[in-house]
Design a protein around this nucleic acid. Sequence first.
RNA 1: GGGAUCGUAGCUCAGUUGGUUAGAGCGCCUGCCUGUCACGUAGGAGGUCGCGGGUUCGAGUCCCGUCGGUCCCGCCA
Length: 612
Amino acid sequence: MSLKLRRDHRCGQMSVDKVGQNVCLSGWVNVVRDLGGLIFVELRDATGKVQLVADPNKNKEVHDVFVNLKNEFVIAVSGKLTGRPEGTCNHSSPTGLVELYPDQCEILNTARPLPFQLDQGEKVDEALRLKYRYLDLRRPEMSKNLVMRHKISQAVRRYLDTEGFIEVETPILCKATPEGARDFLVPSRLNPGSWYALPQSPQLFKQTLMISGVDRYYQIARCFRDEDLRADRQPEFTQIDMEFSFVDEEEVQRVTEGVLVESFACAGIELKPPFQKMSYADAMGLYGSDKPDLRFGLEFKDFTAVARNCKFKMFKDVAEAGGLVKGIVLSGKAETTSRKHLDTWADYAKSCGGKGLAWISFGKEGLRTSGLEKHLTADEIEQIIQIAGAGVGDVILIVADKAKQVANVLGRLRLKLGEELGLIDETLHKLLWVVDFPLFEYDEEEGRLMAVHHPFTSPRVEDLDKLESDPESVKARAYDIVYNGVEIGGGSIRIHNQEMQSKAFAAIGLDRETASEKFGFLLEALESGAPPHGGIALGLDRMVMLLCGCKSIRDVIAFPKTQSGACPMTSAPSAASDEQLNELKVYNKLDKTTEKGKTTDKDKKGSCEPVC
RNA sequence: GGGAUCGUAGCUCAGUUGGUUAGAGCGCCUGCCUGUCACGUAGGAGGUCGCGGGUUCGAGUCCCGUCGGUCCCGCCA
């Protein structure tokens, strides 16, 4: 089809300096304002909106076309751009000083009334927005997000290129790994009974590339994890994946800081590296989180020493069992904190799995407590106040429990209070490296040690001798990068030595045979001259979400999944035909499917097995 | 696997203690209207109250189940 009118300008470019020029524009009818005589139409394209005017006295033909225009019709117009008459300018629009009286107008396509109005924006039910995602993405708020994502990707590519990185693509059809998240599986037609796994990350490939001598690799890589979804978690997501040869932590962190400086600059945010560092132990001890939000205080105070020597059984037992008694201080909140507030917070603490919440309110009229004065001496309460650094007008909230539980309960309470009491300075951009993670953590359910980061993470040199004797005390050469309390990336210096890698596998209970079967190629590669190497992966979706000011990564992904992992637009996932399954030698254990392709019994777990 | 919450017109919502013919704004359709920019104005069409069952003389409203959305816990090396 040949167009009579060929676009030569974009709506967003229409400004006073183009007045007098002949322009041809194409786009969508954003809105029609038909005054009976004059008809105003807002024309929208990817760059913006501009006002078109049809005057029946000036051009009857064009006016006749305009009379029939409806929202979201696709049109092309041409004519001379004019400045708006005195008093009719719209100063709230970027193109509000100009308008176009077309001398030609062509309707390129019509549109039925839409299932939702584009100007209703975020108010529209998300399921509907996802079903008609192509309409949702027409909204400038959404297309802005896509553009921001593009800009950040481009900035990252530009920056990493200057730092000597090359982008290498790694397979999507991979081998399943025993550790980590649940894998998505893909049956192999050519090898009936065998399955590929989609990559949880390109981890092993990028390490292999280091052994190949690639030196510096990056990839904006799609990753897949078959776990439950959240506002910030999708089954497929994108990482800025990097790996470096011959580096230590400092170099990885320097380059990562550069990536973040460039990315944040896309959103007009200036970051100043180097970023603050904090040990995992401090993060957990002071904020009860491995990703503390440092935009506000409320650091934990430790009252365990007082508790150990007091007569209050509740505190004393916890302290003697190796637990902790810790609290946070709400400065100057004694007057505004009612008993109801305290009860609500205590309920919240319980809902987080805590046993309760003790409190001391240091009001003008004197002390009020959650009954603590019955169990503690005045001197002990005074000691607590001293340790808390509290004074008149302050409130102290106290939790006593196992160390892990104190961190969990008090950490979550801290976040809730930070928000509820308006303590968070929204203008701050707090970047933080969390370092010195433990290498392993004991998993009660599995009954074995698990890698905190992943099993390829190098132990700290000074802890090497403890790898077998006291593995839980070994620190990892790992680092997470945290932005305003959100983990946006993590990485480590890797093991580049076969012997140590075997020891690490052994520590997490991976026997020689399994290790060899699952990771034999890596162990072998490590024996062929593997350079010291390390890297990091940044969560692109989360970064873009935060930089766009969105609450969900779904708003920065063009075609995201719902919480149940479905795509309302395409209705994926759907049943496969018997023909397809037969070809794959896969047997469907589920009951027969309905016409709609949905399983008749949702309670049964979908499971497919090779027939052989 | 668990907790919370939502589902009423195309969209966003209201709908009292269970009681007559289920309402509003926007959108849509038909008029009128020459400087609008949330155009205005007059009229009109439009409803399996997510679905199934139960309680009741009577259910949008109460109960049970189910489907779908969202948030969270678990899970996410």
